[in-house]
């Protein structure tokens, strides 16, 4: 209860501010309507009319909630209107990008820790790669992959997601693989351990806490990458495409519902990663 109360307090605060902002932003439309009809309206009449507009500037929480419910549970999950359907498309893309990002991040980190020349040549580029805005890069990656004959959108989406998610894994793994101190390395030397054994028995297990800490960041980055990958022209599936459709066709409810669906997906992904981390920690004897 001690942990729930602060969260609920903040949530209640957000809802109150949200309602107030909805009234304030949607009132403009009500006043315009009244002016066109040549009538005047009082605030008491305005407020109810800001709550259920078809195309509100800022839909109030209950409208978003209803639309979200309709999208999640109101139709067959195979329907093109189902947020479960689009959410699954985004989830699939996120997982592919996440996997690709982990593999790329870990392999690069291994190479960087092992070879000084890699440390000096690759690391700066890895950092620079993250300064390029992904929204600028995403259309290029999509165009390029269709040039290469990849008509399937899954591949460019995964690449964009991996582009964002490899970096936290890389940075953490470099730190983690270098975590063992000189004494621990000396100990293995007295056993005559090979480099491979040093890696498998010392460096790799020592890097695991760093690895799992990076996964939470990486999975969120991967989701963002996937959604960005779904935004450019041509995408019709996925939460990103849904948001774009909502915004382009003046359907704010669709946009907001997709946004919240993405937030729920992000929350689920982080809970899953946290669960896997707890399992791993238990196996590695970490107390608590």
């Amino acid at each position: 209860m001690n942990r729930v109360l602060p969260v609920l307090t903040v949530l209640a605060g957000i809802v109150v501010i949200w309602y107030a902002a909805s009234v304030w932003m949607n009132a403009t439309w009500v006043f315009d309507q009244a002016e066109r009809a040549g009538t005047t309206v009082t605030w008491a009449e305005v407020i109810p009319q800001t709550m259920n507009q078809d195309r509100p500037l800022l839909p109030p929480p209950h409208q978003v909630g209803a639309e979200l419910w309709k999208g999640l549970a109101g139709q067959a999950v195979t329907s093109k209107r189902s947020l479960v359907y689009h959410g699954f498309v985004t989830f699939k893309g996120t997982m592919m990008g996440f996997g690709l990002g982990i593999v790329a991040g870990v392999l690069l980190a291994m190479a960087i820790v092992r070879f000084r020349v890699m440390d000096m040549s690759v690391m700066p580029w890895a950092i620079i790669s993250q300064t390029v805005p992904i929204v600028a890069l995403a259309p290029m990656i999509i165009t390029l992959s269709s040039q290469l004959g990849l008509t399937d959108r899954d591949v460019p989406k995964a690449i964009i997601a991996a582009y964002l998610s490899f970096f936290p894994v890389l940075v953490s793994m470099v730190k983690g693989l270098r975590a063992p101190d000189q004494m621990q390395l000396d100990l293995l030397r007295t056993y005559g351990a090979s480099e491979g054994e040093t890696f498998l028995k010392l460096r790799l297990p020592a890097s695991m806490p760093y690895f799992f800490a990076s996964l939470k960041v990486a999975v969120a980055a991967s989701l963002v990458g996937t959604i960005v990958g779904e935004l450019p022209t041509g995408a019709i599936e996925g939460l990103g495409a849904r948001m774009l459709i909502g915004s382009q066709f003046g359907e704010p409810l669709i946009m907001w519902a997709s946004l919240f669906a993405a937030a729920i997906l992000a929350g689920l992904l982080i809970v899953i990663v946290g669960f896997v981390e707890r399992l791993a920690r238990k196996r590695m004897g970490v107390p608590g």
Binding site: M183, Q184, D186, L187, T190, P205, A206, M284, G285, V286
Partner: peptide, 13 residues
């Protein structure tokens, strides 16, 4: 030889 360091240096995992 076996070598014992100042810290036990046991692997926590």
């Amino acid at each position: 030889y076996g070598y014992v360091f100042q810290a036990a240096g046991l692997y926590p995992w």
